[in-house]
Write a protein that binds this DNA or RNA. Structure first.
Lengths: 200, 200
DNA sequence: ATTTTATTGGACACATCTGTCCAATATATT
DNA sequence: AATATATTGGACAGATGTGTCCAATAAAAT
């Protein structure tokens, strides 16, 4: 046998996730990813086929991180409004904690590429569908508990949560963290009955 | 005197607005703009200094289109919820009417560049501030009229309208138009008292 | 017709990025 | 020590993009 791999392939993908999140698809080049990952260009091309392939794999891996997050939301006993705020506020706090206010790769990619690239849609469509179903389930449960207004349509409310998160992520790029948090709180409050608003 | 200018400088800027809206800052090159504007590269550089300069001018001109829109919202006698839905639904319908689902240049730019470029912030910051003030004024008025829930903070609610519009624009890039419209309706309904929900 | 200005295509230097290739070096196994 | 594999830097061709320049052409004025 010979020399073993010294860098972790997955760590390079994680770097790629960070760089693509920060600079977007069109704004990222191989040099940036290699620099972030502390590997040489040659090592990059020895290990991966192309920058585009790495982008798709980064996007796939990134969306996979949502699986345990959805699992948590669906199994927790906390009231629905508290879970919704935990989700929104948590994601936004994480984004604001970073100096560069790097947003979510999925949302950034949807905003940048729309439906232009089939391979991207193949990754993002099921991910979005899974999130929408999770949000809708949460809202329906909250309505049954009397925490969430029952005059709101569960399907479009669930979709709205997804849209609001995307919009708050844009705001988080350019506005103070406290303002974004207050917006998230106001949004969840608007979905709530008076009783529900006490629960988060 | 000699030959007169055959193309309208402003029409080129309008083309630039369209191209930058569609492909983003990093994804746009001079050739795309010239093609869209039906002028030669040389004509472009005879008239403008650089692609970056055209981008900034396009952004400036685009934000200026908001001035009459805000004026309308602030002077109309319609109930606040109706005006909010007119604003959200109108912008989104316009975006969905286009085959490519091209979004708003300001929102796209904020999402893509964040606070990285000073010249961009100089343009977008006052524009955003003007919109936030408009939304907040509308919400305060709606609360006074009993159309909008008065347990919602007017400042963060106004900011939330701006964020929601940005988020719905992302969704409008990838989701069916009817879904996006239903989301806008659900959002305005969530801001409303039962009485207010009747007004739009 | 002549002059003045606008526009165009093409060529250019310069820069950047991609993906490939090779020679040199480092690190593991036998 | 010998061997096998990993990694690296550098060089490379090809593509693409920017901004400049010039010669040719088109259209308006006098």
């Amino acid at each position: 046998m010979g020399r073993r791999k010294t860098f972790d392939e997955q760590a390079v993908i994680d770097s790629a996730i960070a760089v693509f999140s920060e600079h977007g698809y069109a704004g990222t080049d191989v040099g940036l990813v290699c620099e972030r990952a502390n590997i040489g260009r040659s090592s990059f091309y020895n290990t991966f086929d192309s920058l585009d392939a790495v982008f798709l794999r980064a996007l796939r891996d990134y969306t996979a991180t949502g699986i345990p997050a959805r699992e948590h939301l669906l199994t927790s006993d906390l009231p629905a409004p508290a879970l919704l705020f935990e989700r929104l506020g948590g994601e936004l706090a994480q984004q604001c904690a970073n100096e560069k206010r790097i947003g979510c790769l999925s949302a950034n990619t949807a905003a940048e590429l729309g439906r232009e690239v089939d391979a991207v849609c193949t990754i993002l469509d099921p991910d979005r569908a899974a999130w929408l179903e999770t949000y809708q389930t949460l809202i329906t449960r909250g309505q049954a508990d009397g925490h969430i207004r029952d005059d709101l349509d569960p399907k479009s409310s669930g979709e709205l949560v997804q849209s609001v998160l995307a919009g708050l992520r844009v705001s988080a790029r350019v506005m103070p963290a406290e303002d974004v948090d207050a917006q998230a709180r106001t949004f969840v409050a608007a979905l709530c009955t008076p009783a529900g608003a006490e629960t988060f």
